[in-house]
Nucleic acid binder design. Structure first.
Lengths: 246, 246
DNA sequence: CGACGCTTTGACTATACTCAACCCGTGTGG
DNA sequence: CCACACGGGTTGAGTATAGTCAAAGCGTCG
């Protein structure tokens, strides 16, 4: 239980610069153009939003926020990956999701709660755009179509979260792993060989189990001829239907 | 596994009438005035929304929607209670939440998915107001402040859902039950005696366990002097701190 | 009253967690 | 360049937690 949280003295936000749209956009433009919630807007509106955005960089292991931090901005990932996790009442760590470029977080607190309840931490070097709560609020009131996009994203997340809840509540570990592999495959455009998006420790946390169980169950699936463990993070799916009926 | 789904031949939506605001409002007005997402609006706007709303009644056991049904409206509960549940890949039933007057559902599908993935079923006689997807969309674009309300509600739901996920993934059944009792108490304005909001079978489904385990664990908590089972649905909390540290 | 469904209790079993040891790959420093 | 330390990963043995199945109790509703 001791190594579950590696509290750092402070927030250590390395670089920090405005990415105004007139700046010779290195990642300034990229951080917004690919964001689903904005990409339907006109150029003029994009420019307006741009001017409200501030870009931050995080090194591997640095935190965007932690439980108890006041939640006053939306974070949009433009590069790298961010993991969102929380601690259960018991102190155990639970990985909730991994953000990739285009995904956002911080919204929970933005609209309802006052402080964050979860951790957001870069699992590799990442750059992130932020908008302050008040600016975002104005933006949503001024351009209602953005709200619809955010609502759409939220409802998708809710769907996912409820599906995950259901799996934890009703499926065995082996099944959860199988379903996880299948989802990885869907994301990796149907190639038969998948690359695990996280290490096994995190995978265990995400799937509500232990690294030991992951190890054992993967070995069982391999023995059953359903998969083949190519390397530490690479797995080849041999029998999709078999996996589905685990 | 057989009795988990009791498929009914059709949707059996009993009464069905428009609740136009000029109609001699029996439950017509009540169905909207107490809805959090609308209650900040002016009377004129309320009237406008009223005219878009259609009210339905459901008898105990009737379904508002089922998985596979096209999702084309938002449902707002004005009377009674509705349970939302889904089936896991394995076929096991999982109770997700219970709606009370003022709560709404159907939104997932409204904004992103095309069809429902869960069941919505009245657990007691209920009346429900609905707005069609297209009308709601127009409404949100016209009155952006409604979107903010819905976003706030969504983010709260997401928070809840992620908390629940974490509990399933990391806490023991006994702990989940204890936390559930505590939440019931919070809702029942701190009285030491709580009324369970559902029967034990549903409670088991909601907490991701079995009726047998609920029975046993409650007995253990009673033996430990933390609670007292007054009657089937009434429980007296004897030692709150004890419960918290289970 | 009887039937049905929910609840409880008991005995048994399976699933997966814990703890401990060991292995392996990587990155660091001598 | 090698040795070593470190973290993650794997394997094994033992155990706890909670699920299953079966039977019986209890309440309610027709």
């Amino acid at each position: 239980m001791g190594d579950q949280i590696d509290r750092k003295p402070e927030h250590n936000q390395a670089r920090c610069h405005h990415c105004h749209h007139h700046a010779s956009g290195t990642d300034g433009d990229s951080c917004i153009s690919l964001v689903p919630i904005f990409n339907h807007l006109e150029q003029a509106q994009m420019d307006e939003i741009m001017s409200l955005i501030r870009s931050l960089s995080f090194k591997k292991g640095e935190s965007l926020y932690r439980p108890g931090d006041p939640a006053n901005s939306l974070y949009i990932v433009s590069e790298g990956r961010i993991k969102i996790y929380r601690l259960a009442e018991s102190g155990k760590e639970q990985l909730l999701r991994v953000l990739r470029p285009g995904d956002f977080t911080g919204e929970l607190a933005l609209f309802s709660e006052k402080v964050h309840e979860s951790y957001a931490e870069a699992i590799e070097a990442a750059s992130v755009c932020t908008i302050a709560r008040s600016e975002l609020n104005d933006l949503l009131l001024k351009y209602p179509s953005i709200s619809l996009k955010v609502l759409s994203e939220f409802s998708h997340r809710l769907e996912q979260s409820e599906k995950q809840t259901t799996r934890f509540a009703t499926e065995r570990v082996e099944t959860r792993i199988a379903l996880f592999l299948i989802e990885c495959m869907d994301n990796a455009n149907q190639s038969t060989e998948i690359e695990l998006p996280m290490n096994k420790k995190d995978m265990a946390s995400y799937l509500g189990t232990t690294p030991e169980s992951i190890s054992r169950k993967l070995a069982e699936l391999e023995d059953a001829g359903l998969i083949q463990q190519v390397s530490n993070k690479k797995i080849r799916i041999l029998d999709l239907d078999g996996l589905l009926s685990v």
